[in-house]
């Protein structure tokens, strides 16, 4: 690494997070370590229920970590959450737009809450509407938007404050191929402008195309981390699909038997909790 390389925008060490309910404790993250250098895209991959949304929740100050240190944009999420909030943008898995307002009003709402001021706010709103191809629909209520338009508006709202670090939780799920590619272009443009991005995705192709680094989350930990090519090479695999299949457990419904290509990292139990055991596999992937 050259000494002038930018420092990490996201630093996660030993992150633990459980959900507590009457049924007991449900550990989801059991020691996540992850570093994302500034100005890069990292894709967080993992099967459904692996804890991707939970991880994004902790990183974006919505959830409190039980243990571990989490720093985003140089600030600790527990000690100084407002400093983190001032520098991040989040597009969650659930769309965060107001259906009763128009596209322009939604953007304006965020601009006002960020105190951009009248003129600057209006300019920013117009810019974003143009950039996301929403200018024609700007005056229409969001309730009338298609899924792709909602997603775009959601992302535009995330970008109003020109955040340094952007979290995208399954940004392209449910989008048609054209909208998906448009979103990829947008992500590339953001990174070119110096933004750091952590995105979660179920589409390995997406990670392959977009990400500088891929982190595979399974059994509460990051079981593999590297560039898409490094991961493929380490697993002697032709595609990230194969890497994914080799590294992650089959869904709990089909019991936890391993298929020999990987040493088991987790064993699903009937109530959905995971017991983590050490694996040698992930050590070799560093």
């Amino acid at each position: 690494m050259s000494p002038t390389a930018p420092g990490p925008a996201i630093e996660v060490a030993g992150l633990h997070k459980s959900y507590r309910s009457r049924a007991g404790e449900h550990p989801v993250l059991t020691g996540v370590d992850l570093t994302v250098p500034a100005g890069t895209v990292t894709a967080l991959l993992g099967p459904n229920g692996a804890g991707k949304t939970t991880a994004v929740g902790v990183l974006s100050t919505l959830l409190r970590p039980d243990a571990g240190t989490v720093r985003v944009a140089g600030h600790d999420v527990v000690r100084d959450p407002d400093a983190v909030r001032a520098r991040i943008g989040v597009t969650g898995q659930v769309s965060a737009v107001d259906d009763l307002l128009t596209g322009a009003e939604n953007l304006r709402l965020v601009a006002d809450l960020l105190h951009l001021g009248r003129a600057a706010g209006r300019r920013r709103v117009t810019d974003l509407l143009d950039r996301f191809g929403l200018a024609d629909a700007a005056g229409k209520r969001v309730a009338t938007y298609s899924g792709g338009m909602r997603r775009k508006l959601d992302l535009a709202m995330t970008l109003v404050g020109e955040p340094d670090v952007v979290f995208l939780d399954e940004p392209t799920t449910g989008l048609d191929p054209r909208s998906r590619r448009a979103l990829w272009d947008e992500v590339r443009a953001l990174v070119a402008a110096g933004t750091t991005i952590l995105l979660t995705t179920q589409y390995l192709e997406e990670a392959d195309h977009l990400a500088d680094a891929v982190a595979v989350l399974d059994g509460g930990r990051v079981v593999a981390h590297g560039t898409p090519d490094e991961l493929k090479a380490a697993h002697d695999a032709g595609s990230l699909d194969d890497v994914f299949l080799a590294l992650t457990e089959p869904p709990a419904a089909t019991d936890g038997t391993t298929d020999g290509t990987t040493s088991s990292t987790t064993s699903g139990t009937t109530d959905g909790t995971h017991e983590t055991s050490e694996t040698t596999e992930k050590e070799t992937l560093r």
């Binding site: 974006s60 659930v94 769309s95 965060a96 965020v110």
Partner: peptide, 13 residues
């Protein structure tokens, strides 16, 4: 129930 409250909660307001 929608995501909008989560958006407000991730903003420094």
């Amino acid at each position: 129930a929608g995501g909008i409250m989560a958006r407000f909660r991730t903003m420094a307001i």
